Amino acid sequence: MIQLKKIYCLTSVFNDWDSFTILCDRIEGISKQLVDYDFEIIAINDGSTDFN
C-alpha cells in the first residue's frame, strides 16, 4: 500500500466564511490533481461573530 504525503492547510477565519468556502473549493480542485497527496484543511474560528 502506498502511503500518501500529507499537506495541511491551516487558516484562521474571522467573519468571512464565504471566502473560506471559496478557498476550500480551490484547494479541493488542486488536491484532485495531486493524487500522491492527502490534503487536510483546518480552520480556526478567530472570534467570529457571524458564525452560523
Rank of each mutant, 00 (worst) to 15 (best):
I22H: 04
N45T: 00
D25Q: 14
N45S: 03
G47D: 07
D36N: 04
N52D: 11
E28I: 07
A43C: 08
I7L: 15
I44A: 08
I42G: 08
Q33R: 05
E40F: 03
D46E: 10
M1W: 08
Q3D: 14
D46Q: 03
D50C: 08
I27L: 11
S19N: 09
Q33S: 04
I42Q: 11
I2E: 12
T49K: 14
S31D: 06
L34C: 01
I7Y: 12
E40N: 10
I27E: 02
R26P: 09
V35L: 03
D25C: 10
D16K: 01
S12P: 11
D38I: 06
K32F: 06
L34D: 02
I44R: 08
I44M: 11
D18A: 01
Y37A: 09
S12G: 13
E40K: 06
D36H: 07
I22W: 07
L10W: 05
D16Y: 06
T49V: 11
C24W: 09
T11G: 14
L10E: 14
S19V: 05
I27M: 07
L4P: 04
I30T: 04
L10F: 14
D16L: 07
I22C: 05
L4N: 04
S12L: 11
A43R: 07
G47E: 05
V13H: 00
I27C: 01
N52M: 09
K5F: 11
I41L: 13
S31Q: 06
I30D: 04
W17N: 07
F20G: 10
Q3L: 13
E28W: 09
C24D: 10
Q33D: 03
E28D: 15
T21L: 14
F14I: 06
F39K: 02
Y37N: 04
T11R: 13
S48K: 00
V35W: 01
I44P: 05
I41H: 03
W17H: 09
G29K: 13
I42P: 09
Q33M: 04
T49H: 10
N15F: 05
L10T: 13
